[in-house]
Write a protein that binds this DNA or RNA. Structure first.
Lengths: 188, 188
DNA sequence: ACCTGAACACCGTTCAAGT
DNA sequence: ACCTGAACACCGTTCAAGT
């Protein structure tokens, strides 16, 4: 949605970036209730321009989530270079969590599934899963995590972690949650 | 909201029960998008009657959540009678999870915080926490769980678990998640 | 006391006119 | 190509009239 199109006219590109930035800011501040008109105004464009890029509010939320998933993949790729197999895994989780922490719009979209469509997200997710899959395999082969750990567990744990972030706004809570999750990964 | 009022007139009481039942059903089916008019119609009452009991959509959602919290407390009270300290804790978690599983409206309300208010929920929560606190203390004293386990951890884990239920609709996923969480509780 | 539903207000979305 | 905002539609909420 935000990607893979022939380049936009310079002013249109600038507007697009302003829109996503404003959306992120207002969703973070007001939750899903943030209004499309306010977002457009905040970005300094007409409401029609906003709708030209994102046909629905859902689509706008989805675009923000996709950006975050792409960030996840970048984090995982970097974590994969860590020599210690366990560290690579734990660091992926921790860095992704930190990245989500600063992105209330993502948490929100994530927590309000029925109010947005996942169009195109599968794409980003499978790119992410490829890396995470390798990181998990390595940790398992090295015997530093329980032998039945699998890819889906990762997403599940991140999902739970995101949920507590959304509910309990303090950093300490989700770090504690992460600690408990990691403890559950110890070799059997 | 649903409780502590002088008894309603018989027909009003019947209407109230129909309303919450219909709300539960329609929210489960359509998510937050379920419309107030449809809920009223489904319950066989006028829209005004619905608003007489629940001043806003948020209040309606909140009432459903409070009912579930009360159910949690009942489950915990029963689990407390289990002789084995670890079993008492694990059973509390599992039974609560099962109870949430059958209540999509609760998952919904819980995951869509910005669309419902926590009014009055503290009350139910502290009743629940009293029991859970005792169960956790007993398990810790018995040395069957990590020595730093505390009350807040319980809510956090349940929150994460509810999130995966909401996202991944199959029973296997949340049971796996629960298994990982329990593994993380092992004595250090 | 409680019930009803037409009317109102708000906000997501469209579209005709403009550059 | 892209921008604009007035107009429309939908749905949460209110309230005057009724039992």
């Amino acid at each position: 949605m935000t990607i893979d199109h022939r380049p936009l006219r310079a002013d249109a590109q600038r507007n697009l970036e302003r829109i996503t930035a404003s959306a992120r800011a207002l969703f973070a501040e007001r939750g899903t209730k943030a209004q499309m008109e306010d977002i457009a105004a905040h970005a300094g464009v007409g409401i029609g321009t906003l709708y030209r890029r994102f046909p629905t509010k859902e689509a706008l939320l989805t675009a923000l989530v996709r950006q975050r998933f792409q960030e996840f993949a970048a984090i995982a790729v970097e974590a994969e270079t860590i020599a210690d197999p366990y560290d690579a895994l734990a660091t992926s989780m921790r860095r992704q969590a930190e990245s989500v922490e600063g992105d209330v719009a993502f948490q929100l979209a994530t927590m309000n599934i029925d109010s947005f469509s996942w169009d195109g997200i599968e794409e980003d997710k499978s790119a992410l899963n490829a890396v995470i899959g390798r990181i998990i395999d390595r940790a398992r082969s090295a015997g530093v995590v329980r032998s039945d750990l699998e890819l889906d567990d990762f997403a599940m744990m991140m999902c739970g972690l995101t949920a507590t972030m959304y509910f309990l706004h303090d950093k300490i809570s989700w770090q504690r949650h992460l600690e408990l999750l990691l403890a559950g990964l110890r070799p059997d």
